[in-house]
Every structure is written in structure tokens, then in C-alpha cells.
Design a protein around this nucleic acid. Structure first.
Ligand SMILES: [Zn+2]
Ligand SMILES: [Zn+2]
Ligand SMILES: [Zn+2]
Ligand SMILES: [Zn+2]
Lengths: 160, 160
DNA sequence: GCAGATCTGTTATACTATAACAGCTTTGCT
DNA sequence: AGCAAAGCTGTTATAGTATAACAGATCTGC
């Protein structure tokens, strides 16, 4: 429930934890966490912010892991499909999941000041949107919840 | 609060009501509802579904109202900026606001069966996302709330 | 009527994403 | 091991979405 992401923290552990959690899930579900896929996840975890597909491709290219768009998009499809990463629709960018493993309804707080994106995990089916959908007889299969605004730090700087 | 949009209804009145509400708002706020802008709003109201910018451009072109992308995008920027239309981020498409005039936080129900999009109007600042944001010291300026799934009709057809 | 602001038309280009096909690798089975 | 099916990768080409920049037209307030 708490929205981490706007606070400094030790980052190496983020990366290791994220990759190993993904590896574990893949093993359990018979999925292949291949070289490219693992590396894309690492890149997202390393940068710890939303990246465009072509940003990622540039890194892959520099490492000899693939140089054409489909390589990046396929890896991202895999990662997003299985919940290891998410697409931020508002930005057309991708970000590593901050809680790889659990089945969740992610929501994002996008700071327009520092461009950081924080992921909040909400309980599914308990909000106003769910109620409105239920009232209309609509069955939700996937939700995009993204808020733009200012994080605490950036807001302070604007006010000051 | 109720999500209209998945039910048949008389449409001419939608169009007239929408345009005149927009015209009224523009007069009140000193905005210019020019030929192109009005026509784009009409097109969105007529079709009553989400349209891509290039779909709209095609219509404009056929009517001699502008043939280059910026013409459509500028009109859409105007309409979305002032709440006469909304962009559906998940689809990269645009739709006329179903309640032109009121200041609102729109949420959308996107049916993957029939491609219809219904707009629900939620009260701002009362949901889980707002609470999560407040807890993180984050100030929301704009929210994207989009749910994909099946409307009542399409769900019935799938089940049957 | 004039100055400033705003809107339109146009060219060019940037950015985002996928189709399609050939070849390689892994997996599961015998 | 040998084989077939499924899945992954590399590549070319192309589709789809969006904006920068500048010149000219129109509207607005004075
Ligand atoms: Zn997540
Ligand atoms: Zn910030
Ligand atoms: Zn609306
Ligand atoms: Zn439907």
C-alpha cells in the first residue's frame, strides 16, 4: 500500500532481489527467463525509472544483445505479460515492477517535476472504478491507474 | 456516477447538446470554438466512440477543413485541455466527453468485445489512489483511470 | 487602424510499435 | 541419441502516433 519510489535507497539489493524473484517465478511456471529478457529486467531495475523501448534497445545494442526494435519489444511483452514490469501508458514507457511475484493491481504516481514514477499496490476490486463498473454490468479484466502530479520533494521546491 | 455508453439512445440530441454546451463554456471563458475545433467535436460526438487522430484527420480532409496531422492534433489538444474531449491513453484514441461542462475526474470502461468506451464520472480525491498519494505526500494534478473488460452485452455473448 | 495574441496551413521529422519470415534453441518424447 | 513441436531470436520492412518550426491569416482590444 505504501508508495515507495520517491525515497533514496540501496539499489544493488533492488536489482538482485528483483531478478531472483523473477527467476523463481519463471522456474515455478515453466517460463524461460532468457539472456535478453533477464538483461532488460536488469536494465529497468538498474535505472529505477520509466524507460522507453528505444532507450532499452540502445543499451542492448551497446552490449551486442540485439539491435532491432522487436528484440526490445518482445522482451518487454514478456516482462509485462508476467508482471515483472509494467507499461506506463501515459508516458509510453516501461518500468520494473516494484514487487515482483505477487498478483497485484498496480497504480502509478508520476512526478512531473523529477520524472520519477512510484508504484503503489492497490487491492483489486475494492475501489470506485470497480463499483462504477459493477453498476454498469461491466467486468474488469485489466485496469490502468496513473496519477500525474508532484512528489513531496518537488512540491516543496515549487512552493519555496 | 452511472456509466452510460453501452446502451442505445437517441443520438442527434447528444450531438446538439454537446456542441451547445461546449459553445456556452467557450463564450463564458473567452475561448474560441473555431470551425475546425467545432467540427472535430461534432465528429467525435457523431461517431460516439474512440477515434484515432488520423481517423479524424481523414474526415477533415474529406471536408476540406485541413489535411495535415497538426490540424487534427491542435484541435484535439484544445478539446482535451478544456474538457470537451478526452484521450484514452490505453488506445491512443480520443472520445467526446459525455458530460461537457462540469469539472470532473473521468474514468473509462473499455469493452474489448465491441470496442465501445463508456465514461464514468467519479468524485475527485475520494478513492484509493488519492489515499495512497496522500500517504506518500504526492499531489495529484491529473489522473488516468481506464478499465478494460467486457460490457454486459459482450459478456453475455461470450458466456452463451 | 494598429499591435499583440491566437489560430491555421504546411513541410519535415521524430517517436512508438508491429508484421512477417527465416533460422536457432530448448523441451519433451521415444 | 534422434526427432518433432514449441518457443525464442535476428532482420527487414513498414505501420501508426505525435510534434517542431515557420510563414501567413484572423481575431481581439485599444
Ligand atoms: Zn507491479
Ligand atoms: Zn518529483
Ligand atoms: Zn468527461
Ligand atoms: Zn461490449
Amino acid at each position: 500500500m505504501s508508495a515507495i519510489g520517491f525515497h533514496p535507497h540501496n539499489h544493488d539489493s533492488c536489482i538482485k532481489t528483483g531478478v531472483s524473484a523473477a527467476a523463481k517465478t519463471c522456474t515455478a511456471q515453466g517460463l524461460q527467463l532468457t539472456e535478453v529478457r533477464r538483461r532488460v529486467l536488469e536494465i529497468l531495475l538498474e535505472r529505477h525509472r520509466a524507460l522507453g523501448a528505444y532507450d532499452i534497445l540502445e543499451v542492448l545494442r551497446s552490449e551486442g544483445l540485439g539491435s532491432q526494435p522487436p528484440v526490445a519489444y518482445r522482451a518487454l511483452d514478456f516482462l509485462t505479460k508476467h508482471g515483472f514490469a509494467h507499461k506506463i501508458e501515459r508516458l509510453n514507457k516501461f518500468i520494473a515492477c516494484s514487487d515482483i511475484g505477487g498478483d497485484h493491481t498496480p497504480a502509478f504516481l508520476i512526478c512531473t517535476g523529477c520524472n520519477q514514477v512510484a508504484e503503489a499496490h492497490l487491492e483489486a476490486g475494492t475501489g470506485r472504478l470497480s463499483k462504477a463498473a459493477a453498476a454498469a454490468g461491466f467486468t474488469i479484466e485489466r485496469a490502468v491507474l496513473e496519477a500525474e502530479g508532484l512528489c513531496e520533494t518537488c512540491r516543496g521546491q515549487t512552493a519555496a
